[in-house]
Design a protein around this nucleic acid. Structure first.
Lengths: 129, 129
DNA sequence: TCTATAGTTCATAAGTTACGAACTACAGGA
DNA sequence: TCCTGTAGTTCGTAACTTATGAACTATAGA
């Protein structure tokens, strides 16, 4: 029976800007990271449904791996599940403001999209579900 | 004779955070953007050599297209060449601090790498070229 | 030991990127 | 007008990356 390869967490000096940007340039990963920075300790399966989209378990697992190996999150096994938390304090030491500003930009964009959707719904007058 | 497709510059509201992060997650594109933000008006061919690496012309052209279509730069034909400039003021309006913080992080990383290289060279004592 | 739940790995299909060769675009002569 | 040189783009394809289902490992609890 083959054993599983251990989780990889780069040390803070091995984290790269390119890696961070690439990891957060994916909307699913950005959403996961945003959620984790609010409610630390969430598991992989908490994200099987993300903004009305179904993400397969194997895909999610890869996204968590990408975030982990870019140095953005830390994952720890706790019984049968995996608890995840951000490494934002560490990263903020090394690249001040980077993560915060990126997440803020994502927020601004989400708010704009929300407004755009509302406008469209409003112009349609009393939709039928 | 087939005519060439015109340059695409997204309007400011069509620029996305994902697009910006993805474009700047490539080290060549980040270097191009950094250079443009210092010396506006540089052309594509100014980057055929970038930090000791030769980049083929066709690859460079694609990198400029990526930056342009992500909304990061504006390109204008001027005679036989193409003048490029950043759209940082516009983007800064929409996503305050985003570009600046990313470029700052790239700088920090470049400075660290420089120091690491110097340490290595120093420990080797009087290399031969 | 059996079962259920959580997550990973692997194979591969689908998508993206890099780059040489051939092209378009323009300027400045002849 | 045609020719030549320089700047940049496009296209085909090889190399790389990402998404996903099926099969797996890992752990807890009965």
């Amino acid at each position: 029976m083959r054993t599983m390869r251990p989780l990889v967490h780069p040390s803070i000096e091995d984290i790269t800007v390119e890696g961070i940007l690439h990891a957060l340039s994916d909307p699913v990963r950005a959403a996961i990271y945003a959620e984790l920075s609010i409610s630390s300790g969430a598991t992989c399966s908490n994200f099987l449904k993300i903004s009305d989209r179904d993400i397969p378990k194997s895909t999610l697992s890869q996204h968590f791996r990408a975030l982990r190996e870019a140095g953005l999150i830390r994952s720890e096994r706790q019984g049968v599940e995996m608890r995840n938390s951000t490494r934002c304090e560490e990263i903020n030491q090394r690249f001040p403001g980077l993560i915060m500003t990126i997440m803020k930009a994502h927020q601004i964009q989400a708010a704009e999209r929300m407004r755009a959707t509302k406008r469209k719904q409003g112009s349609g007058r009393s939709r039928v579900g």
